[in-house]
């Protein structure tokens, strides 16, 4: 009985830490899907791209994985702007987002994944840093640094973005762009430009999320697919466009998945996100903090 209780506590604690990491990988979709209404299912592929950048920076140049990604953030930002521009010209302007726009991202997902396989192979890759092993001992519980660092990174990213969206002109424009393009024009802001910036940001967060991912676990190119259901479950459960809701959803999913893995076996964990997604869509499609 006692063993069960301590198992439960440690499952909850590491689940919360995992949830913070989930927030890091989901925040980009909270922007692109939640605020721009663009369903970028290729997001996990760009997370992995970030992981491999961290891997190269770490193994080839010996730089800290997070720092490696930080250095390349402008490149990811530009890649995101480019992706949106293509999406805008080919689908949004033609009003063909639902069939061909979705399929476009689906194609990107595979191009990215196979590209990574061809370059890096299917072996698992990992990084070296002081926080990849070892624990922070808090007496009652021991927190592994490899979970704690991504957790903090995730919360820092969400916090910084929340401030950016609330306090800056561009940030407020991004929040308005999906709801009221007319008002945006009155503010003399070009909706396409605003969306381009937001999509660039979304890609940049994906790269940072990738650094967090390779700290938590060794990665290989097809691992990204597991995250599609997870990320979208989190964004839908959180209520599209709401960062606080997204964080709550991410933490919840982290905990539920971890409890499932602890008591039913890790192979069942991937099913949790689908269950959460389906129940949310059936019962409350606007999410926990949705309007």
């Amino acid at each position: 009985m006692e063993a069960d209780a301590s198992l439960l506590i440690s499952a909850v604690v590491s689940g919360l830490l995992l949830g913070g990491f989930y927030a890091a990988v989901s925040v980009g979709v909270a922007i692109s899907f939640g605020m721009l209404d663009i369903v970028n299912i290729a997001h996990p592929a760009f997370i992995l791209l970030g992981s491999y950048v961290a891997f190269i920076g770490n193994t080839v140049f010996g730089i800290d994985p997070i720092l490696s990604v930080m250095i390349t953030l402008p490149a990811f930002y530009l890649l995101g702007m480019l992706a949106y521009q293509v999406y805008y010209v080919a689908f949004e302007r033609r009003d063909d987002q639902s069939l061909r726009g979705l399929s476009f991202f689906f194609g990107l997902l595979f191009i990215a994944e196979v590209g990574l396989i061809l370059v890096f192979g299917v072996d698992y890759r990992s990084v070296q840093a002081w926080y990849v092993s070892g624990n922070l001992n808090l007496g009652v519980v021991e927190l592994p640094w490899r979970l704690l660092v991504p957790f903090l990174l995730g919360l820092a990213m969400v916090g910084a973005l929340q401030i950016f969206l609330a306090r800056t002109f561009i940030g407020r424009a991004i929040q308005a762009v999906a709801q009221d393009q007319q008002a945006l024009r009155l503010m003399a802001a070009d909706p396409t430009k605003i969306k381009r910036i937001a999509f660039g940001l979304s890609f940049a967060t994906a790269a940072l999320g990738g650094a967090a991912m390779i700290i938590i676990q060794p990665i290989e190119p097809s691992i990204g697919r597991e995250y599609i259901g997870r990320i979208f479950a989190i964004c839908v459960l959180g209520g599209l466009g709401s960062f606080p809701g997204m964080v709550i959803a991410a933490l919840t999913l982290g905990v539920v998945e971890n409890i499932t893995a602890t008591f039913f076996g890790p192979s069942w964990a991937p099913a949790v996100s689908f269950g959460v997604l389906l129940i949310t869509l059936a019962v409350r499609p606007s999410g926990i903090l949705g309007r």
Partner: peptide
Amino acid sequence: LRGVFFSIATLALAVVVQT
């Protein structure tokens, strides 16, 4: 719901059936 939700649900469905 809107079509994208169906699409996202089917993506997740593939993972859960595999599980």
